[in-house]
Amino acid sequence: MNCRVLTGLLRIISISLAIIFSHVVVADGVVVDKVYHPYVLPNEREFEWRMLSHQNDAGNSLGQRIAYGQSITENIMVEVYLVGERDSNDDFGLSAYEIETRWMITEQGEYWADWGMLFEVEKEHKRDIWEFTTGLLFEKEYGRNSLALNAFLIYETGSDIQNEFETELRLQYRYRWMPQVQPAIEIYVGEDYTGIGPAFMGIQRFNGQKQLKWEMGFITGLNGDNKDHILRLAIEYEF
């Protein structure tokens, strides 16, 4: 892509997000999820499972999601999710569906940092609640160190929710120690929540494009609750 066009496009997106961001409040759900990287490979297909267990003064909640994703061009990947949550009666069931598109804007390593975008639409099961997300994905590497940053703008709408814009920020510093074990620190801000904690991730390669990626994070909320911990797990099988 022409560099001037690219720079202009990113500036417009950034300014637009900033203008909107300056007039919105932070979101009101669970912020901790996954820090995205702005990379897409052609011919990539994957199954993904994510789990999030949240313990705070109000009790324990559990969410899981399974997904199938596939790259549709050399730099665009589409992923479809089914989201499940445990309700107040301890029954686990389907809670939402989601479609997500990741767009790798710049070639990895071409510029000082790498950029991508994320677009997401989520619909809650049995409730008229829609969530539209637009996000900037940023990553800068220096040697074995990588810094990833996600800035999301979310619009919630529907008859079962008050329409509003929300924002989220996710940050991950990762040290690529060895393929199977890469320690990280993650920070999540948004939804009246600020959390920080250690994370570990890794990758195990098999034949061809087959590989298994895993992530585990333990995030502690800094909002003053006596107890506010989130354990997140993710496993991704690429083939």
């Binding site: 300056s22 919105v24 409040v25 510029y111 920020l169 801000v189 948004g190």
Partner: peptide, 21 residues
């Protein structure tokens, strides 16, 4: 709900963009 320090985030993103290219 608290206001998020978005002007700061805007500055950070713009700086990263300018430096990137």
């Amino acid at each position: 709900m608290s206001n998020f320090p978005m002007p700061f985030i805007h500055c950070v993103i713009m700086t990263l963009l300018i430096v990137s290219f």
